[in-house]
Design a protein around this nucleic acid. Structure first.
Length: 302
DNA sequence: AAACCACACAACCGCTATATT
DNA sequence: TAATATAGCGGTTGTGTGGTT
C-alpha cells in the first residue's frame, strides 16, 4: 500500500516532491538504505539525508525510524518488571513527559514507553472505570501495583529464593537534587549485615536494580550489560538517607507462603494509606483473570 | 473457515523550541 | 532581527496479528 504525504509540519517541500513520498511501514530495503547511509555519513539534517540517501521519505520519517527502531542502542522486547516500576514511579512524578522518562530507561524510546502506558496502564484504568489521572487510580498504582512489582522483582532476584522466611522492603528516595535512589532491604541476617544496596538513577543497566547486596558502580559495569554507552559518573552509587517517598513502599511483611495473599489487615500498604481509595468498592472486585492481565500483580485484591 | 474484535505498536501529525542563515 | 530550517515532544491514528465466536 502506498500512502502519500499531504503536507504538514515544518518540513517544507514542494507539492510535487510530497506526492513522490512514501508513507506507512518501512520496508527492509528502506531500512537497509537508511542504516547504510547513516553508517557512512552520520545522522542529522534529516531532510537532506533523506534526499541524498535516495529515500522517498520525509526527513522527519527517517529520523523517527532511526531513533525509534533502527538505532543500535534501541532495546526491543518486553518491558521488564524493573522497567515497569521505573515507568510508574517516574510517571507519577513527571506525568506524560515521555522523553524525560525514557532518558531513565536506557534503550527504551519515548514512543515505546508511551505505548506501554497507553496499552497496559490506561487499560487498567479503563477496566476499573476510573480516570487514569484520578487519585483513586494513582493510589492503586502506588500502593498496590508498584509494591507488587517490587516484590516480584525481589523474589526473582534474591539468591535466598522464596520470600518465605525473608521479608523485604524497597524504598524509593529522592534527595534534594531530585535524584532518585532505590534501596533494598532483605531482612535476613546476611543482608542486614551487608546493609542496603542503593543505586542512583539514571543508570545504564537495570540488571541488579533490586538485586540486594550488589552495588552497581562503574567498575562492575560492562558494555555487555547495557545497551547504552554511558559515562561512569551517570550511575555511581550514593546514599540518600532522607526519603520523601518511603511511605509508598513501606509495606508489611507477608508472613504467608503464598506471596500473592495478604489478609485484610496486612495489605501491602501502611497506616498512611490514603482514605480515598476504597477497595471494597465493587469496581475493585475483579476476578483473578482481570488482574492477571498484567503479570498476576493484582491478585491480592481478590 | 470466515468474520469479528481487541490489542500492541509503528508511524504520522501538529506544534514548540532551538539553531542557522 | 527576521526568516527559515531542524530537532524534538506528545497526542493520535492506522495496521498487522492473534484470539474468539
Amino acid at each position: 500500500m502506498e500512502h502519500h504525504v499531504k503536507g504538514g509540519g515544518n518540513y517544507n517541500q514542494s507539492e510535487e516532491e510530497l506526492m513522490e513520498l512514501r508513507r506507512g511501514p518501512w520496508t527492509a530495503d528502506e531500512d537497509f538504505t537508511l542504516i547504510n547511509y547513516i553508517a557512512h555519513h552520520g545522522e542529522g539534517r534529516w531532510n537532506s539525508l533523506a534526499t541524498c540517501a535516495g529515500l522517498r521519505r520525509t526527513g522527519k520519517s527517517c529520523r523517527l525510524r532511526w531513533l525509534n527502531y533502527l538505532h543500535p542502542n534501541v532495546r526491543r522486547g518486553n518491558i521488564t518488571l524493573e522497567e515497569q516500576v521505573l515507568i510508574l514511579e517516574l510517571h507519577s512524578r513527571w506525568g506524560n513527559r515521555w522523553s524525560k522518562i525514557a532518558q531513565h530507561l536506557p534503550g527504551r524510546t519515548d514512543n515505546e514507553i508511551k505505548n506501554y502506558w497507553r496499552t497496559r496502564v490506561q487499560k487498567h484504568a479503563k477496566q476499573l472505570k476510573c480516570d487514569v489521572n484520578s487519585k483513586q487510580f494513582k493510589d492503586a498504582l502506588r500502593y498496590l501495583w508498584m509494591p507488587r512489582l517490587v516484590e516480584r522483582i525481589q523474589a526473582g532476584a534474591a539468591p535466598t529464593g522464596s520470600t518465605a522466611g525473608t521479608s523485604s522492603t524497597t524504598t524509593t528516595t529522592t534527595n534534594n537534587s531530585g535524584t532518585t535512589t532505590v534501596s533494598n532491604y532483605h531482612l535476613n541476617k546476611t543482608n542486614l549485615d551487608m546493609g542496603p544496596s542503593q543505586m542512583v538513577l539514571p543508570q545504564p543497566n537495570m540488571a541488579g536494580y533490586f538485586s540486594g547486596g550488589v552495588q552497581i558502580n562503574p567498575s562492575n559495569y560492562t558494555p555487555e550489560t547495557s545497551c547504552n554507552a554511558a559515562s561512569s559518573d551517570s550511575f555511581g552509587a550514593q546514599v540518600s538517607p532522607v526519603s520523601d517517598l518511603t511511605d509508598c513502599f513501606n509495606y508489611p511483611v507477608n508472613h504467608h507462603n503464598n506471596q500473592d495473599y495478604f489478609p485484610p489487615n496486612e495489605l501491602p500498604y501502611g497506616e498512611s494509606f490514603n482514605q480515598g481509595l476504597d477497595f471494597n468498592d465493587s469496581n475493585w472486585k475483579y476476578s483473578e483473570d482481570f488482574w492477571n492481565v498484567d503479570d498476576d500483580i493484582w491478585k491480592l485484591l481478590q
